[in-house]
Nucleic acid binder design. Structure first.
Lengths: 138, 138
DNA sequence: TTAATCCTGACTAAAATAGTAGGAATTGAC
DNA sequence: GTCAATTCCTACTATTTTAGTCAGGATTAA
């Protein structure tokens, strides 16, 4: 399963934007300070957030980032997906034939892990970025 | 988050036991064949399952393993916990003071990740080993 | 013009995962 | 009583992933 610091940092940074980027772009340096994440690492993360159209950038001096959409419209799953590529626990060796582990039938836990995936993804589908800003308002 | 092949293998092996270890102990060699997991790796896994009192062993020739308790009484969380130690996504750097990342307050996503942990653990709490054997009866 | 900032790819250290290897202890089967 | 099957146990190792760092280029507001 992929659910690491990078994904968590991405959510933190996006929440930071949601709270602070009201009328001016927020620089990564600011976020780095506030959230205690290295600047260079943030740059990597925002590259992916941008290519997934979750943030909009303004280059040059006094530049920074905005959210591309209202916080109410951004699902956490969008963010996680953008930086971690997938939230999948299932790790059966896939073959040409349907089935796992070179066997013609699905392994015992195949469906279980599928369900878990849905369970976790469902969680991130339900929560919006805005939900995070409510309790931690600036 | 810790939710890897080892945990999945453990669940698979336990399900295999639940299905097959009715009146005789099942050797790891058998499970290895059926579930396509290396014998040496299974040994490692069963060491932990045993010390967590999830299986009972019978040594010597024609030996093997039984479930320690009825499949209906074994929660998947017990199994995962036994081999993976924890199902926790939360990765805030903890300090003496409550709070994350050397800050006096909790990081924005702290509660969120806590909730996710509960969400996932809840899933494994609900499902019993027996539930797995129903659809995949021998 | 220059300083701040984003943009990009390549590199790296540390940790975790997914095993392997080798042998010792036990005991049922013959 | 021997032997073969099996559990038990510890240590080692290759691979992959994570969590960054680094170096430099491109853009633009002040």
């Amino acid at each position: 399963m992929k659910l690491t610091n990078k994904g968590r940092y991405a959510v933190m940074a996006m929440a930071d934007l949601a709270i602070n980027a009201k009328d001016r772009p927020i620089s990564l340096a600011e976020i780095s300070l506030r959230q205690n994440i290295s600047l260079a690492y943030l740059e990597q993360i925002f590259l992916k957030l941008k290519s997934n159209k979750l943030v909009r950038s303004s280059r040059g001096a006094a530049g920074g980032y905005f959210l591309e959409k209202p916080a109410a419209e951004i699902k956490l799953s969008n963010i996680i997906h953008a930086v971690d590529e997938e939230v999948k626990t299932l790790n059966c060796k896939k073959n040409s034939k349907r089935g796992c582990n070179n066997k013609p039938i699905k392994c015992i836990t195949h469906d279980l892990w599928d369900q878990l995936d849905q369970h976790i993804n469902g969680f991130f589908e339900k929560v919006k970025l805005q939900d995070l800003t409510k309790t931690v308002e600036k």
